[in-house]
Design a protein around this nucleic acid. Structure first.
Lengths: 135, 135
DNA sequence: TATTGTTATACTCTATAACTATA
DNA sequence: TATAGTTATAGAGTATAACAATA
């Protein structure tokens, strides 16, 4: 029963694979597509559509449709920017803020096999990941 | 300069987010879409299209198009299953095997900020992740 | 009857290019 | 002239439902 441990890179890929699947499931259980959920996450504050596109690493033309669908669902609205009349600011509604929080809550809870680690091991894992992930 | 360390769940989400982006970039630099690359990864051996769809967690009807495009690129071929004439086995070509290996190589190398950890710390991280990710 | 792969349909995401209204 | 958002277009992924061939 001596199961061979895969190398670190394989473990990281496995982790990403599993977590991505679970995240997608939970987001779609909330009735949103992934791009819509990602947009919500970036909309902590009113944001020009152009900036949002940059943050989401997609072409600006895509944001038209994504914003349309967020508006249709009542999760966000377009607001004119008084300082530059070319710009439209995308802003979360109350409902959008609630959805954003709900998705974050669902995604952050019950992660993978984290329950198999004790408090000290989680602390250790967090320290190591912090070193890896830090800017 | 005392930067606050985010909680473990946030660190894991951050890691997944970063790695997912890099993986997508590298896959698309190889000229494939993510679903095509995932299909290649699962095609270690000839595989009925139905099983592949199950593994990829998508409807079987999607595999028709994905397999079509893999065949157009000469990366895979459909082969009849002698044991069950309803079944078509998807099989990698030589070119498909090479692409599969190339993608895996590119994805596995130079991961995120892993270079910031020493050998002992990497060993520790691998042990912890193995506990988390193990079946 | 049940299953495999396909087709038809509809929706979403994706990029490119052209357009408009501002700056 | 440059930029912000939109539109038009085309390709790809996604699910559902219906279908032909086979079990």
């Amino acid at each position: 029963m001596g199961e061979l441990r895969p190398p670190l890179d394989a473990l990281l890929l496995l982790l990403v694979d599993r977590m991505s699947g679970v995240i997608r499931e939970r987001v779609e259980a909330c009735g949103l597509s992934m791009p819509q959920a990602v947009a919500l996450r970036y909309l902590e504050q009113p944001c020009p559509m152009r900036n949002l596109a940059r943050a989401m690493r997609c072409d600006a033309s895509n944001l038209t449709g994504i914003a349309d669908r967020l508006e249709e669902r009542g999760l966000a609205v377009r607001r004119l920017d008084p300082d530059d009349r070319r710009v439209k600011l995308l802003v979360l509604t109350e409902s959008g803020l609630a959805m954003r929080a709900a998705i974050h809550r669902r995604i952050s809870s019950d992660i993978a096999g984290l329950e198999r680690l004790g408090p000290a091991e989680r602390e250790l894992l967090a320290e190591l990941l912090w070193r890896v992930v830090r800017e």
